[in-house]
Every structure is written in structure tokens, then in C-alpha cells.
Simulated scan of single mutants.
Amino acid sequence: MSSAGNISRLSDQLLAIFVLLAVWWGSAAFVNNVLLPTPGEVFSALQVEWSEQRLLDSLLITLQRVAISFFCAMLLGGLLGVLMGKFSTVNRILDPLLIILLNVPALVVIILLYIWFGLVEAAAVGAVIINKLPNVAVTLREGGRMFDEQLEEMARAYHFSFKQKLTELWWPQLFPYIMVATRSGLALIWKIVLVVELLGRSDGVGFQLHMAFQLFDVATILAYSFAFIFIVQLIEWCILQPLDRYAQRWQRGSERV
């Protein structure tokens, strides 16, 4: 994407945010109720949480849980999905289990693990991994099914090492599916982490939301929500979008070759 296109896209996003803030401010002023705070009141609550060092500590704890759960789910779910896509026997055996995991409510998994293992960190992270793993497996299974057999034959003919197959054959073919699983994974995992923290942890953003709920403190609830959304959006802008652009350049280069 050209620099002009990036500037245009950024302008559109800023305009959308400005319109949303204007509608929110106008609605809050019209209703004039503590249950619908203005953007200024939410910003004030954000400053209070930051000055009392609750905001940063809670964000870091939650992000740590998100990172651990995300990488474990991507690794295990990705490996499972690729094997299911590449080998029909593995898919036939594991597909019923995958369907079950996809349809079990996240809340049920969280409650069961807390009951079985107690209100411990391992149960919290494990519940998030179990809830995300089947989504990753389904996405990467499609990637495994799309492996080019002609490229596989070429790799065998030229005696590619495992490292060469991984970096030069499998990874480029799987990359678009990995990006889909990554984006959907981040969107899902942080929501599940907040529920896990709300139900059974004594720290993190979810715990702070629970405390604010007890006091009907909507401004603080929104302050934590927007702070975490901002962090996730930074990950999108600074990591995922550059990776996407790099992959597109690689694909265009491959097509020219």
C-alpha cells in the first residue's frame, strides 16, 4: 500500500473516531446520567487509575495471560490443524473432538477448570487455551489441505532438509491462514481472559472491571476497556499490519518470478 493510501486510511479512521466521540458526548450530555458518563469523565477515571498505579499493573498482568494463552493456543492448535488438513486419517479421528470443543461454551470450560483445579493461574490460562485452540485448528486445517503436492514432490526430489521445508515450503503456504488465526485469536483471547479474571482471579483488568461493577462505576469500566482496546489496536498497527504488507510483497515477488 502506498504512503498516500496509508494517510487516507488513517484519516478515515480518525474521522470515524471523531464522529463516534461526538455522538457519545452528545448522548451523554442529553441523558445526563451517571450510568452514561461523558468521554471527559472516562478520561478522568483513566487518570485516577493510572496515578494510583492500578491501570498499568492490571494491563501488564492481563497482557501476560493473553500472551501465554495466545502462543500456546497458536502452537498446539496450529500443529493439530495442519496434521488434520494433511492427513485424512488424523482428521477423521480428531474431527468429532474438534466439533465438541467448538460448541462447548467458554464459560462452561472456565467454571469446570476452576472447580477441578481450583482458582489457580494454571486453570485460568488453561481455560483460555482450550477455548481458543479449536478455532486455530479449524483455520490451519484449511491451510494444511491447500499444500501444493507439486512443491512437495520437488522438495523430495531435491532432498530438502526439514528446516528448508519448514521455512521455504510450508511457512509461505500457511502464512495467510496463520494471519487469519492470529487476528481472530487476539480478538477472542483477550475477551476470554477478562472473563477468567472476573470469575476467579484477584488481579488483572477483569478483576478491576468486577470491582467497578460492584460500585456501578461505569466510567472506570469504560476506562479499562478503552485502555485495553488501545493496546490491542497498537498490536494491530505495529505488528500485524506490517507483517501483512511484508507477506503481500513476498507474494507479488513470487508471482513475478
Rank of each mutant, 00 (worst) to 15 (best):
A4G: 07
G5F: 04
L10D: 09
L10F: 14
S11V: 13
S11F: 12
D12T: 08
A16Q: 13
V19L: 13
V23R: 01
W24P: 04
W25F: 09
N32D: 15
N32S: 15
N33L: 11
V34F: 09
L35M: 14
L35H: 04
T38Q: 10
G40H: 04
S44T: 13
L46M: 11
L46A: 06
Q47T: 08
Q47E: 10
E49V: 00
W50N: 06
W50S: 08
W50K: 14
S51R: 15
Q53R: 12
Q53V: 05
L55N: 02
L59R: 02
I61E: 10
R65I: 14
V66Q: 08
V66R: 10
I68T: 14
F70H: 06
A73W: 04
G77L: 01
L80W: 05
M84E: 05
G85D: 01
R92V: 02
I93G: 06
P96V: 05
P96I: 01
L97R: 01
I99Q: 05
N103W: 08
A106V: 15
A106L: 00
L107Y: 13
V108K: 00
V109S: 15
I111E: 06
L112K: 05
G118Y: 06
I130F: 15
I130T: 10
K132G: 07
K132E: 11
L133N: 05
N135I: 11
V136F: 07
V138G: 02
T139A: 05
E142P: 00
G143C: 08
G144R: 01
R145T: 03
M146A: 14
F147Y: 09
D148W: 05
D148I: 02
E149H: 11
E149G: 00
M154K: 02
R156A: 00
A157W: 00
A157C: 10
A157T: 13
A157I: 10
Y158P: 02
F162Y: 10
K163R: 00
K163W: 12
E168A: 09
E168P: 01
L169T: 01
L169D: 03
P172W: 07
Q173L: 04
P176W: 06
I178C: 11
G185T: 10
G185H: 08
W190L: 05
V195H: 00
V195S: 09
E197G: 08
L198V: 01
L199W: 09
G200I: 03
D203F: 11
G204T: 14
V205S: 06
M211L: 15
M211S: 11
A212R: 09
D217Q: 10
A219P: 07
T220L: 09
A223I: 02
A227S: 10
V232G: 03
V232F: 07
I235T: 06
W237S: 08
I239N: 02
R245K: 14
Q248T: 14
R249H: 13
